[in-house]
């Protein structure tokens, strides 16, 4: 059985969802309450592949909220993720995706050192960040979006914001080895990591955001921040393709200009309906079919019987692994969201 560990996008969202689902004890409660709230298995469902195979899964709500990071409630954030993982393991999930900020919190705060959670010894083989599939989907979105806008990738300048992250570095590897894009602009906060990536790729220009964006035909946004950023649409090239693979998705409401086209990055659509209740609350356009690619990775691993931490650790995603998960993705009926 597979699992998904998810969370809501803000305190306000959490309160609204609690109200909708009929949990008055959780609605109208402030951040302090959520900092104490335990994880819960809130949905059980089946997923059918286009091959006919059917698998079962559970959705674990961690009760993590992004405000725990912005308001420096770090201990609470860490507890949410570890407790959700312990619960996933306790209810017998074989492979579970760490959705949204879960994998980011896990990496940033080095939680692999904390494998004992009460009476549960976490077995990290049972968890995946889902980042390999997310990176693959974002790359396919870049390819498809570029084609739709008439942008020739071999002549294009691509800016990757968050280039040194797990997903960002994987996207750089793919674009470099598969398309030989003309220019690769690398944007991230940590200079040393940028230089390491540049050395690994043997190419790429290290740049700050303001310098890079006006030069880019394509912007891959894979920085994850609890708060959104402002990008002035008028300074961007026209046409410009932005694949917003950051979490949460907040660029499309912020960048408004003719000729700037934004794709919700890292989202896939399944060919068949899924009977889950919980996805109605994660603000997808078609809740019965669309989901984050990281969640879909756990589903694919379960379909394929690859019960292992396929995506784990920072910057381990190879093009080969992206191809492998990509093949599984196509085989079982998942499509990247590509309509501009």
């Amino acid at each position: 059985m597979f699992g998904l560990i998810g969370h809501l996008t803000s305190l306000e969202h959490a309160q609204a969802v609690a109200e909708d689902l009929g949990y008055p004890e959780y609605a109208n409660q402030g951040l302090d309450f959520w900092c104490s709230a335990p994880p819960q298995v809130v949905d059980n469902f089946q997923v059918k592949s286009v091959t006919g195979q059917v698998i079962e899964g559970k959705y674990v709500e961690s009760c993590f909220l992004p405000e725990m990071l912005t308001q420096r409630r770090i201990k609470a954030a860490i507890r949410k993720i570890l407790n959700a993982m312990a619960l996933a393991q306790k209810v017998g999930l074989d492979i579970t995706a760490l959705g949204g900020f879960s994998s980011i919190v896990f990496e940033e705060f080095n939680l692999k050192q904390n494998n004992q959670v009460r009476n549960v010894e976490l077995d990290f083989q049972r968890f995946t960040t889902g980042n390999t599939h997310t990176a693959y989907v974002i790359c396919r979105q870049v390819e498809s979006g570029a084609k739709q806008l008439g942008i020739d990738l071999s002549q294009a300048t691509v800016a990757v914001c968050g280039a040194t992250g797990d997903i960002g570095s994987a996207v750089c590897r793919w674009l470099d080895s598969k398309h030989q894009v003309k220019e690769l602009l690398l944007i991230a906060r940590n200079r040393q990591r940028l230089e390491n990536l540049q050395e690994e790729l043997g190419r790429g220009k290290i740049m700050d955001l303001e310098t890079a964006l006006p030069q880019a035909d394509i912007i891959v946004w894979v920085a994850s921040m609890p708060k959104g950023v402002e990008i002035a649409g008028e300074m961007l090239k026209k046409p410009c393709l932005i694949v917003d693979g950051g979490y949460p998705k907040n660029l499309d409401t912020r960048v408004k200009a003719d000729g700037v086209h934004i794709l919700k990055g890292g989202i896939v659509e399944h060919s068949l309906d899924i009977t889950w209740e919980i996805m109605k609350i994660v603000e997808m356009d078609i809740p019965s079919r669309q989901m984050f690619a990281c969640f879909a990775e756990a589903i694919l691993l379960e379909f394929e019987g690859w019960r292992t931490n396929f995506s784990w650790g920072r910057n381990q995603i190879s093009v080969n692994k992206m191809e492998a998960i990509g093949e599984a993705s196509v085989k079982h009926g998942f499509c990247p969201l590509v309509a501009l």
Binding site: C35, S36, A37, P38, P39, K75, R79, N83, L87, R118
Partner: peptide, 8 residues
């Protein structure tokens, strides 16, 4: 943390 662990 105590409240959370108790509720778990």
């Amino acid at each position: 943390a105590l409240v959370e662990d108790f509720m778990i």
